[in-house]
Design a protein around this nucleic acid. Sequence first.
RNA 1: UCCCUAGUAGCUCAGUUGGUUAGAGCGGCGGACUGUUAAUCCGUAGGUCGUAGGUUCAAGUCCUACCUGGGGAGCCA
Length: 482
Amino acid sequence: MEQIRRTKITDLLKTTETGQIVNVKGWVRTKRGNKQVNFVALNDGTCIHNLQIVVDVPNFDESQLKRITTGAAVSINGEVCASTGSGQAVEVLAKEIEVMGDCDVDKYPLQPKKHSLEFLREIAHLRFRTNTFGAIARVRHAMIFAVHQFFTQKGFLNIHTPIITASDAEGAGEMFKVTTLDLDNLPRTEEGDINFKEDFFGKATNLTVSGQLEGELAALAMGEIYTFGPTFRAENSNTSRHLAEFWMIEPEMAFYDLNDNMDLAEEFLKFLIKYALDNCLDDLKFLSNRLQEEEKGKKAEDKTMELIEKLEFVLSNDFIRLPYTEAIDILKNSKPNKKGKFKYPIDGFGSDLQSEHERYLVEKHFKKPVILTDYPKDIKAFYMKQNEDGKTVRAMDVLFPQIGEIIGGSQREENYDKLYNRMTEMEIPAEEMWWYLDTRRFGSVVHSGFGLGFERLMLFVTGMGNIRDVIPFPRTPKTAEF
RNA sequence: UCCCUAGUAGCUCAGUUGGUUAGAGCGGCGGACUGUUAAUCCGUAGGUCGUAGGUUCAAGUCCUACCUGGGGAGCCA
């Protein structure tokens, strides 16, 4: 076979020029045709579209053509032609075909037909080869790039915070233990506890649940920083919005108060959504069509807004900013509350909002993203800036339709005494957190930050319903295959 | 972790008040067709009914436990 430099399908489909001889490599999606002519739909992962390969059957060996099955990897030299069919502008007329990797159709689980997302989740090693998961992988990459671009343009520094941490004080969730101790023969102290002094780090260590505390250390020297890394929660959460291993973006900014923080969060989310619309439109259109198909059977009232329309809607509307106490008033006077429709009725200040309440505010009352602020201090973390009323803290949660909380953040408590007292009240071991408290002893300053769950963003941008489908290899309770 | 729900062919599902030999569509394979778009038409193979117990003359169907998936809740991002 003549050696020709490979052309990527995404580039080839953009050409209007015909007559040139090219090489394409990829995986066969479908083959159809008759004794005279075969049509092979070829995909190489570079875009959602397939390239149509036209095979004049008499020009090729029958046994070779038999090997061109769904899933097979092929390399093709051929001529770029204007297509006489209606589905595509250009196609490639095959001159030489090499089957690089055969694919036994009796054993290959992906068939040229629609598969359920649940089934594909069981074959996550192969689901990249489907249109849906190919599109998601490309959008995910674009979003990763956009995160770095946004912060770089704004002069933020990317900080790598540790994955292994000795602090378990933040209380963000149950942690995964990290150890090299022999689990069948654990060293004990005289009191009978496990002796972590003999462990690798000489103390008990865990996988991080947040890079925030270390991020604050950097922000209080570098000004504006962000982290973007893996985060681990050992909670036994079995929902479509939680993962045991997920990626989080945590900006932390010196000299920002809560309003600056909200401004940044809103600008950031809009930047990411616009980036997706500007750079991933083909993939988003595919995902949108997929959703429309799925919703065909649904009642009008259950149907959601079309994906691209929804993304543009978020771009063109200001987020509602609402203090917790006002949200409680709205909910208290709402129809579902008065009619007893809420499973958890609103009785007044102090209780945390349930999913049903957040959804009512976002999806029914305001019908746009909502930032709730100034929550009761008792339901929020120790490091949040205490308000003068003594009851609330300068927290903010950004709530999105369908997915709920996409961002959680706050202005941080910069006053040493207030922070130390709050830690004592909440029984957080201040002596282990000496390094964190030091920032409040030496040149402390107003600062703020937030955390964005990257997969939650992906849910919103792709319109997917289950978080396990927007990360390549999901980690959830009882599942760590692949 | 709690509540609800499901597990039958490679995939998606049907299977009546428990009753003879478990069905369909898609996919596969074979054939037909000179340009198809998840092609179409004809034919064909393919099942230890999630696992383990139990009830019964008889269990895919009823009961119990467990496993796994899905939806919801809590925890949160």
